[in-house]
Design a protein around this nucleic acid. Structure first.
Length: 367
DNA sequence: GTATGCTTTCGGC
DNA sequence: TTACGGCCGAAAGCATAC
């Protein structure tokens, strides 16, 4: 295997994206804690923090905490709480993603504020040129949008991601192939993608705390503890190995809508009224994009925040709103019979999406 | 055994 | 004292067909 297989991968990540966009829209808030919130509508201030700027983070205000808890932690300072303006962030993101695409051989967008870029050909496989390209990209985004970003550069997605996290905000971290092992080994094992709280705890029980200790562990022991798939993954990842390609994403594979109910309930009438509305919302997006669906799913987040879901595949694709509502109602019935908890949030999801028309349109014109 | 499809859960952003 | 979104894709686990 020669150099032709060596890649140079970047991970581009916009810093505290939503809150930073809000700072650009209104620079007077820049020196205060800025907290962008998802208000659920149940009560005044029910909901969670989506993103907070670094000033707010110093007070322990981070993504996912309840808004009321954030307010308590910021009660002694002048803080700014704003509702999410998703449409605005989408527009800014789309402009930046097109800039990134121009500078990459291929691009894999991860959510609204992140993307992997394969820049192997763009840089002729030269790390010096990769660093210059990364600086140029950061400058272009700063000049065009006023936003700072962090970039990680490495021989694969795994290393690029960890490198980007190593220094932020406004960071640029490059890890060349010869530096991978020394870069990884002191890091806590939990920094590897796929090692969450649960896996981390089991590793700790085995006496493994760092990536270096993981690399020193016997593969067979890892496989016997975690199974073929995760065991092999942990072994490879600990040595910085990752073959995953930068994969351009096509159209979305599913469309979903979820909402919080006014109160926790098992009342079928209340739940199905919300379900009908969710179906209408999902259907509107299907129509906008001329798509049909072949599977319908429902999800319920219960009072205790546990999650239950049910899914049904249809015999053939359809774009019918009535079928969607009927199927969703049937699935919520099944879901409720599987638990006695009260429902807090209800959601509807369609998948198996396909361009509408085609056979159906031909059939219509045939008759 | 391998491939494929279906359903539910998990977890990143 | 407690407090708690809205998306998405991937993984996991199982069944079926060949």
């Amino acid at each position: 295997m020669g150099d032709s297989e060596e890649r140079i991968i970047m991970l581009f990540d916009l810093d505290y994206f939503y809150a930073q966009v809000e700072e650009i829209r209104n620079p007077s808030i820049r020196d205060k804690p800025v907290v962008v919130c998802v208000y659920s509508g149940r009560t005044q201030d029910s909901g969670v923090v989506s993103t907070a700027n670094y000033i707010a983070r110093r007070y322990g205000v981070t993504s996912g905490i309840p808004i009321l808890l954030a307010k308590r932690r910021l009660k002694d300072v002048e803080a700014v709480f704003l509702p999410m303006d998703h449409g605005c962030y989408e527009v800014v993101s789309a402009r930046i993603m097109s800039t990134l695409r121009r500078n990459a051989d291929s691009l894999e967008q991860m959510g609204i504020d992140e993307a992997y870029m394969d820049v192997t050909a763009k840089t002729s496989g030269d790390y010096g040129r990769a660093k210059e390209l990364a600086m140029a990209i950061k400058n272009e985004v700063r000049e065009a949008e006023g936003l700072t970003s962090s970039i990680g550069i490495g021989p694969n997605k795994l290393i690029a991601k960890i490198a980007a996290d190593a220094q932020k905000p406004d960071g640029l971290t490059m890890v060349q192939p010869g530096e991978v092992l020394s870069f990884l080994s002191p890091l806590p094992a939990g920094r590897l993608l796929g090692v969450g709280r649960k896996t981390d705890g089991r590793l700790e029980a085995m006496g493994i705390r760092t990536v270096g200790e993981l690399a020193g562990a016997d593969v067979k022991r890892l496989i016997s503890e975690f199974g073929d798939s995760l065991g092999a993954y942990l072994h490879n990842a600990s040595m910085g190995l990752d073959e995953g390609p930068v994969h351009e994403r096509g159209e979305a594979e599913s469309i979903s809508r979820i909402a919080t109910l006014k109160e926790d309930t098992r009342d079928k009438g209340i739940i199905l009224e919300k379900a009908d509305w969710l179906c209408e919302e999902v259907h509107e997006r299907l129509v906008q994009r001329s798509l049909s669906y072949r599977s319908v799913g429902v999800v319920a987040v219960m009072k205790d925040l546990s999650i239950h879901s049910r899914l049904k595949s249809l015999p053939e694709a359809t774009d019918d709103l009535g079928v969607l509502k009927t199927t969703a109602a049937e699935l919520f019935g099944k879901l409720l019979s599987g638990t006695d908890k009260e429902v807090r949030r209800a959601g509807v999801r369609v998948s198996g999406l396909a361009a509408k028309g085609g056979a159906q349109r031909q059939l219509t014109s045939f008759f």
